[in-house]
Design a protein around this nucleic acid. Structure first.
Length: 580
DNA sequence: CTTAGGG
DNA sequence: CCCTAAG
């Protein structure tokens, strides 16, 4: 339809006026705006418009566009590399910026003129009848900015001149009537009103998928593209937020918690409070908690968990020798970590205090009347303890057993419905404990449980390094069953590896992906410095990972495309060999 | 219980 | 790794 001037020239102009990122934005805008309005009334409207407004279009360029030799200015910079990027998108027409030089007052344009301008700006026609929308769009395109919220649109030298006094209130009713006398017709009005304000029907997405990127905040962009699964803020996160508040007693963040329901995301960065309480200072924050129905000030620490009790805690009680006493193997990686004053760690619910020999720590229960001591965050609290990760998922659960160490905890707790749970334990629990624990049991497999490195104070959780064979199995599994079928892969490829849950597989795969993508561009950098500790993961594997990733990235998005015919996907539902 | 993601 | 929200 609309033939453009010389492409090179156009591109030259673009690169002259816009930064390369600007071009990108324009391109994406193109993708967005490639739409047709199929509303029934629109055709009629068009017809009417051309009846009634016969000669507006021709006058467009003359009256509103100052096209003084703009082309000439642009043509000298056409060797810009950007040209390559912007041309291949075979859209209907290319933006013709030569028409758009100088001052443009979009407010004075009629719909049709706006359409022309739109076309000149984006190289595409539109049938959107919404003047505001058009103006806004064009303004955005020309000014290369997304926050065009003005009501008056005058564009001058790629900048949006604000003019506040002109109020264009409602284009649906008013402005149409102004411009087009036909707006009075009843049928037109109805058809106009039927037009969705945001009616953009993206019908030709396929044509230029590369442009199909969202170009930013835009109300017209309620695109439901395959986005990542959205998650609402987690409970823990909310808790953290609200816990923060009392600490910032200065009210600086006072309304933070109030708004925490809404503005969560934006607050994210503020939330790391200074919560390192110095030992000497012994800053004890108190919180009003309802304990058994009474309001009681409880010393608390940040990041307490208020949620449901750990299910696994029952396991702790199970092995109770004395019925009430709880014997749990507690191998807190103590290491001076136990500042008695509630520190900021998650574990701080559990206060540990020396009670006896490192080998036999007695915990006494505070509570004679204990209606049941519910302990939460036990897992977390105890979680740091390197239990010998023995077989099965049990290793994930807090392992409780009458261990060789004979750690004996007796709780003299307070009745706490709040599941608050205090344990006094020995600061003295030392290395020997840890080490003993490690060596004593389990650990059948190759790697040790990587002790929380005493050096540097970095405490590592029990962690099995991934062996090369494991990684290879993982890769193979992914290639066989596809990424995402973690449970299958776990069952079939990792049957013998009792640790390594499906989540672990997933995590590892994620890491592999990251590694493979991060490394390939330039092989340097990584191999030299990263040899500390972590296995380098041979390049071939990374390559395979990359291939798989690309494969799956291509295959999966085409959802519902006949079950991924190409990949040699095994029948996953084969019964895993009988014994179980 | 499994997946997907964030931490 | 751990944790949790969604299915």
């Amino acid at each position: 339809m609309h033939v453009v001037a010389d492409p090179g020239q156009t591109v030259g102009c673009i690169s002259n006026e816009e930064s390369s990122s600007g071009i990108a934005q324009l391109e994406s805008l193109k993708g967005l705006l490639q739409s047709r309005n199929k509303e029934a009334g629109s055709d009629k409207l068009n017809a009417r418009l051309e009846e009634t407004v016969p000669s507006l279009a021709p006058s467009l360029s003359e009256s509103h566009f100052n096209q003084s030799g703009s082309a000439g200015e642009c043509s000298h910079s056409s060797d810009n590399p950007v040209a390559g990027g912007s041309t291949p998108s075979a859209v209907t027409t290319k933006p013709d910026f030569s028409k758009l030089k100088g001052e443009i007052c979009l407010d004075n344009l009629s719909i049709k003129e706006l359409h022309e301008t739109f076309k000149a700006t984006f190289g595409r026609e539109t049938t959107v009848k919404d003047k505001q929308w058009l103006k806004r769009r064009i303004s955005m395109g020309l000014t290369n900015s997304c926050d065009v919220s003005v009501t008056s649109f005058i564009i001058k030298d790629n900048k949006l001149v604000k003019k506040e006094n002109e109020e264009i209130s409602n284009c649906m009713d008013g402005s149409y009537a102004e411009d087009q006398p036909i707006g009075n017709h009843k049928d037109l009005l109805t058809s106009l009103n039927q037009l969705d304000y945001h009616q953009v029907v993206p019908e030709k997405r396929v044509e230029n998928p590369s442009l199909d990127d969202n170009s930013g905040s835009d109300d017209h962009q309620t695109e439901q593209r395959a986005a990542k699964r959205v998650r609402k803020p987690t409970k823990r996160y909310i808790e953290e937020l609200s816990e923060v508040e009392p600490k910032e007693s200065n009210g600086r963040l006072m309304n933070l918690a109030k708004n925490s329901g809404h503005g969560l995301i934006s607050l994210k960065s503020h939330v790391r409070p200074v919560r390192n309480v110095i030992l000497g200072g012994r800053t004890v924050v108190t919180r009003l908690d309802s304990l058994g129905g009474y309001g009681i000030q409880v010393p608390c620490v940040s990041r307490v968990r208020r949620s449901r009790p750990r299910k696994n805690f029952m396991a702790l009680l199970k092995f109770n020798p004395s019925g009430m006493g709880t014997e749990a193997m507690l191998v807190k990686k103590v290491h001076g970590d136990h500042s008695f004053p509630p520190d900021d760690e998650k574990e701080s619910r559990v206060f540990l205090k020396a009670n006896s020999t490192p080998e036999h720590v007695h915990h006494q229960k505070f509570n004679p009347s204990g209606t049941g001591t519910e302990a939460t965050s036990i897992k977390k609290a105890f979680g740091d303890h390197s239990f010998p990760p023995d077989d099965g998922k049990e290793s994930r659960v807090l392992k409780v057993s009458s261990t060789p160490e004979h750690v004996h905890h007796q709780f003299i707790g307070v009745p706490e419905k709040d599941k608050q749970f205090s344990v006094m334990s020995a600061i003295g629990l030392g290395h020997n404990m840890e080490l003993k624990c490690m060596n004593s049991s389990g650990d059948s497999d190759d790697n040790v449980v990587t002790v929380p490195t005493p050096k540097g104070g970095i405490r590592r959780k029990h962690h099995r390094a991934w062996t090369l064979s494991e990684v290879m199995k993982l890769v193979e599994g992914v290639s066989s069953y596809g990424a995402g079928r973690w449970s299958e892969i776990k069952r079939l490829e990792f049957a013998s590896y009792s640790y390594r849950t499906s989540v672990d597989l997933k995590d590892k795969w994620r890491n592999l992906l990251k590694a493979s993508l991060a490394q390939t561009p330039q092989d340097n950098g990584m191999n030299s410095r990263k040899n500390t500790g972590a296995m380098p993961i041979p390049a071939p594997i990374l390559l395979k990972v990359r291939e798989l990733a690309e494969m799956q990235a291509q295959v999966l998005p085409n959802l519902s495309s006949t079950k991924i015919a190409g990949s040699p996907r095994k029948n996953v539902h084969e019964k895993q060999t009988g014994f179980l």
